[in-house]
Simulated scan of single mutants.
Amino acid sequence: MSQAALSLKDDPGPALASRPIGTLPVRLTINGEDHALDLEPWVTLLDLLRERLHLTGTKKGCDHGQCGSCTVLVDGTRLNACLKLAVSLDGSEVTTIEGLGQPGNLHPLQAAFIEHDAFQCGYCTPGQICSAVGLIAEGHAHTRDEVREQMSGNLCRCGAYTNIADAILDVMGQEGRE
């Protein structure tokens, strides 16, 4: 072998790498804040939020899209964050429970959940509230039965379903309508 064949003079090396090897550039707006990220293609939105951005309000329940604990809003639409790869959301706007309201300035659904005692242990509450925000924006639910059906992807182990429906109906201005 010649000496030229072993030369590394043309190797740009790691100093010139534009991003870590095996990652893809992703731009997301999360709770109104722009993020330019380099992510491995297998990172879920849930893991990005919880483990990399430390937004732990979004909960990891089943990690299979069956419980709704990880529900967030992506471009205003309800989404199970455990089922979506973050790189597929490039350019999207994500809203988590942390982006809906703050102490002293609660989102109307957060206030209604408190008023109607719509949570017990509270583990599912962030997903329930994000899902309810999406449900109201969609405009598909008008009755208690429709609210219950549209919220059926969000499980509550404590069984606060009646109070959750009451809170949602209250915000919709239709409490008590059957």
Rank of each mutant, 00 (worst) to 15 (best):
S2M: 00
K9E: 09
K9V: 05
K9H: 04
D11M: 04
G13W: 05
A17K: 11
R19V: 01
I21K: 13
T23I: 12
R27N: 15
N31I: 01
D38G: 10
D38S: 15
L39C: 12
E40F: 13
V43T: 15
L45K: 14
D47I: 02
L48N: 04
L49M: 08
R50S: 11
L55W: 04
T56V: 15
G57C: 07
K59S: 11
G61K: 10
G61F: 04
G65D: 13
C70G: 02
V72R: 04
V72P: 08
V74I: 12
T77N: 12
L85G: 04
G91P: 06
E93A: 06
E93Y: 00
E93G: 00
I97R: 08
E98C: 02
Q102C: 00
P103S: 09
A112P: 02
A112F: 07
I114V: 15
E115C: 02
C130Q: 07
S131R: 03
V133P: 00
L135M: 12
G139R: 10
H142V: 03
D145Y: 06
V147H: 00
L155S: 13
L155T: 09
G159Q: 10
G159C: 06
Y161F: 15
N163C: 06
D166C: 04
E175Y: 04
R177T: 14
